[in-house]
Write a protein that binds this DNA or RNA. Structure first.
Lengths: 221, 221
DNA sequence: TGATAATTTAACCGGTTGGTAAACATTACA
DNA sequence: TGTAATGTTTACCAACCGGTTAAATTATCA
């Protein structure tokens, strides 16, 4: 019996919509801060304001909650990369991508941490997504970047590592938020830190990928 | 009674040295892959090849193992940043720092993941270290970088976000290793990925921080 | 309104987990 | 070699955890 009781009703009810939404919201909160193994159904139940058996009426297992959550979040998480446009101006595209990723780190830090927790611990529950949809999308965009480099529109560089670098630097502000705040100190760690980060990262990537070495006129090695 | 039985012997024995070492090595392995809450004393005991009560003879609690581990690892983890030399050539210093951090990500991924797990989950057990020694060291080095920028030796930029960017991009190869491998594919994900990463990151940071915009001759904004 | 479907809760279960007590085994040293 | 100090193991416990059962409650709608 693979389905939870709520999915075996004659038709999908309003209450089911609402409660499943409520549970996934709570699950995001808990899984993002504790990881899968570190989270308990009771914690999720408390955040959702429901009893544990009630949660299990809507999701048969803890794993099912996690799976549903990942599926829901993964798609929107990849949106910024999908918007990456081969026809656009390379510098503009890269700059926009950085800005969008940074906005997501600011506005959806829990989603970022959910993935970070999962990947960090070996991605046992999202391996398929990594090697499937994610890899395909990155491969596609890597081709675009490589073409830009070949055409001399940006510096010759490994497109995969460029994408990794953008992921790393932007998601850092969500995943390592505590550390960022600790280092910046209470005074400098206000919301302005995202604007400072955006300014720095634009400088770094735009200059860093400009064709030719900056002062020398040739690639710096 | 705050001390484990092994610490209440008349003097520190050879066996104590060896076993504590063995336990911390096993604890690193387990904590790095499962996080604190996700790790069990039994897991650590099995990796260490000892019985659970025997572990608890040397460390009173799971938390004590974790604390001892963090203390031991934190210091060496900050070494690369300490080597950052105010007197040296800025470009050389930054390049060396990136190289060292990347080597650490390659050679000590477990240490990286240990911290990543901890910070990601709100750093409840290392808050003091973040706001104390870490912040002090970063503040000190930020001053150096700021002086370089003021002197026109590198582009004007926020030194804190520069350090964050170096951390993020280098540690990414340890913390998100599974994802990196998945995206690169089995063929391209050999040990060469660290050299590719080093090449890319040098290009990015050296060009990115070079004074003046690369083609324009003025700062790109 | 009443009957039926849908939802919620209380009580419970077996396995796991962090940790303890005490008996047992080993080592070091006089 | 004997013995006291040190180290290890077996057996155990209470709390926690994922999940089930069945009964009670609430919503829906003819």
């Amino acid at each position: 019996m693979a389905l939870p009781r709520a999915a075996r009703t004659q038709r999908r009810t309003r209450i089911q919509e609402e409660k499943e939404e409520l549970i996934l919201e709570a699950a995001l909160e808990v899984f993002a801060t504790n990881g899968f193994r570190g989270s308990t159904i009771d914690q999720i139940a408390e955040v959702a304001g429901m009893s544990k058996p009630n949660l299990l009426y809507y999701f048969r297992t803890k794993e099912a909650m996690h799976r549903a959550l990942i599926e829901r979040v993964l798609d929107s998480w990849l949106d910024p990369l999908r918007e990456f446009d081969a026809e656009g101006n390379p510098v503009t595209e890269i700059r926009s991508y950085i800005r969008r990723k940074l906005e997501m780190a600011r506005d959806f830090p829990r989603e970022s941490r959910l993935f970070a927790n999962e990947v960090l611990q070996g991605a046992p529950r999202i391996e398929d997504a990594l090697m499937g949809p994610l890899k395909s999308l990155v491969d596609e965009k890597a081709k675009v970047i490589r073409a830009w480099a070949k055409a001399g529109k940006i510096a010759k560089c490994d497109p995969y590592h460029l994408i990794f670098a953008i992921w790393a630097t932007t998601q850092h502000y969500a995943d390592f938020d505590v550390q960022v705040r600790a280092v910046l100190g209470t005074d400098r760690a206000g919301e302005g830190r995202f604007e400072d980060a955006a300014r720095f990262l634009e400088l770094l990537f735009v200059n860093g990928l400009a064709v030719g070495g900056p002062a020398t006129g040739g690639p710096a090695v």
